[in-house]
């Protein structure tokens, strides 16, 4: 998994400037910032608000509305386990319970050492090869407890 940059106001300003000119720019701007820094750092909020002529509350409201935007970076690895119905039908509940035990952390949380974030995701569109997950951006289907253990062990 690629590392993220440390907070640099100049870099953030450049990213904002690169995306601010388009119509409805806020989501593209926030995506660009998160892709660079791994989250939307607090000091980025007033910068974004200023550039897009919004209030800080507007920007905070958008960041907190969408599940994807993080206010703190995720762990070095991110495991997103699908918890929607098609995956439930294929043993998703047991798989989620196993994942929580194996990772030592509940869904929606990051391990204390910052190694791994385990999250629920609602549908990857891999519903005919359920249950499925997105592991550091790679899609994995037909998961079993054994296969999930193998995937988790293979993480560097």
């Amino acid at each position: 998994m690629r590392g993220f940059a440390m907070w640099q106001p100049d870099r953030a300003a450049a990213l904002i400037a690169a995306h601010a000119g388009q119509d409805g720019a806020l989501l593209p701007v926030l995506h660009a910032i998160q892709a660079e820094f791994g989250c939307i750092p607090d000091p980025a909020v007033p910068m974004v608000a200023d550039a897009l002529n919004l209030t800080r509350a507007d920007v905070h409201g958008v960041i907190s509305f969408y599940h994807d935007f993080r206010e703190v970076p995720a762990g070095r690895h991110v495991v997103k386990l699908c918890r929607a119905e098609a995956c439930q039908a294929m043993g998703g509940d047991a798989l989620a319970a196993h994942a929580e035990a194996a990772c030592g952390v509940a869904l929606g949380h990051t391990t204390a050492d910052g190694r791994l974030t385990l999250e629920a995701i609602y549908c990857l569109g891999l519903c005919a090869t359920a249950p499925s997950a997105l592991v550091d951006g790679e899609v994995v289907g037909r998961l079993t407890i054994t296969k999930l253990d193998r995937v988790l062990e293979a993480l560097p």
């Binding site: 409805g24 806020l26 989501l27 593209p28 995506h31 958008v62 969408y66 599940h67 994807d68 995701i121």
Partner: peptide, 25 residues
């Protein structure tokens, strides 16, 4: 192409339009 941000409700057409405009969906 505009990329969503993990909100199921943005599949509702008017929430989608607000999201495209850069607002809460």
């Amino acid at each position: 192409v505009r990329v969503g941000a993990g909100a199921y409700v943005c599949g509702e057409e008017t929430a989608l339009l607000d999201s495209l405009e850069g607002k809460r969906g």
